[in-house]
């Protein structure tokens, strides 16, 4: 039964990936990409990696899907020809060869890891010392905190890159308003947005809190928060901030800054990002809450796009 389920899942993942790559209609390709992401999430669940499954579905399928659909809308607004296959055959073939080679190397690397590589016992022995029970959180925020710190700055860098696309005379205005223009649609979106935003806040706080002992965490919570912000903005319940609003800018950098500050404070103990004995969990949860809030605002603003000249431009 399980083997049959996993086989069907694998076939569906490969099938949706092929359709997403080969279908000529851009919107259909995005739809299949989102389905592919959700199926990948199921596969991670089947492997017992609930943290990865949450992140894959929320960020890999959800946020990326929204960004792709918005990209399509903006390209169409520019009058670009985006459907069909603009690349030449040789370029396609080259891309296929390079990607296949990469997949083979990646597969070989993953398969070369022995199931008992000795890392799991090391982590298990160290986990009690940081007071966190979810090993993924332990790895992300204690043993490999350096990677997570850099990731949080990468996300900030992505927003800076999006902002740098703003026309010179639009800076530092707000991004194009997300609120619906049709009054009846706005009415529907507003009631849903007003309902969802508080729920998203609670769910995000819960996901971060539960992340120290069970699956969850800052990125998952932040994505839920971003979804709540965006729905509220689409319903007109929330406006988008100007890019030079100081409170808003502090919100964006709060997560990475708190992380960096705690990491630097660890240097007083002898090592960058070292937590003092007995305080590790409190510090990790503090970092995660600030990170989740910053990630939520950053993701929402990534979807909203660069500042625009007038309020009404779509």
């Amino acid at each position: 039964m399980t083997a049959a389920f996993e086989l069907i899942l694998c076939l569906m993942i490969l099938g949706t990936a092929c359709v997403a790559l080969l279908v000529r209609d851009f919107l259909a390709a995005i739809a299949f990409f989102v389905v592919f992401g959700n199926l990948m999430g199921l596969a991670w669940l089947a492997l017992g990696a609930v943290n990865v499954a949450l992140a894959e579905i929320a960020i890999g399928a959800g946020v990326t899907g929204v960004l792709l659909i918005l990209t399509r809308g903006r390209l169409l607004a520019l009058g670009e020809q985006i459907d069909g296959n603009p690349l030449g055959h040789w370029l396609n073939l080259g891309a296929a060869v390079v990607c296949s080679a990469f997949a083979v190397v990646l597969g070989a690397a993953v398969l070369s890891i022995a199931p008992d590589d000795g890392l799991a016992p090391v982590i298990d022995r160290l986990m009690p010392r940081i007071g966190v029970e979810n090993p993924v959180t332990g790895v992300l925020l204690a043993f490999r905190a350096y990677d997570t710190l850099l990731e949080s700055f990468v996300l900030l860098g992505a927003l800076v890159a999006v902002w740098s696309l703003a026309p010179a005379d639009a800076w530092p205005r707000a991004p194009a308003a997300l609120r619906m223009t049709d009054p009846a649609a706005l009415n529907v979106a507003e009631s849903f947005g007003r309902l969802v935003l508080p729920i998203a806040l609670v769910v995000a706080a819960y996901l971060v809190w539960v992340g120290s002992d069970r699956p969850g965490g800052a990125f998952q919570g932040g994505t839920v928060l971003a979804g709540g912000f965006l729905l509220a903005a689409m319903g007109g319940a929330m406006g988008l901030p100007r890019s030079d609003d100081p409170a808003f800018r502090w919100t964006l950098v709060a997560g990475p800054l708190v992380f960096l500050a705690i990491g630097l404070a660890g240097m007083a103990l002898g090592r960058f990002l070292a937590y003092p004995e007995g305080m590790a969990k409190a510090l990790i949860v503090t970092i995660e809450y600030f990170l989740a809030f910053s990630i939520g605002v950053t993701l929402a603003l990534l979807v909203a796009g660069p500042p625009v000249r007038a309020e009404t431009v779509p």
Partner: peptide, 20 residues
Amino acid sequence: LLAIMAAGTSAQLMARVTRQ
């Protein structure tokens, strides 16, 4: 409950788009 509310909302919005 969240799923049905999201479905109801998105169905309303999509129906409006198709009518327009």
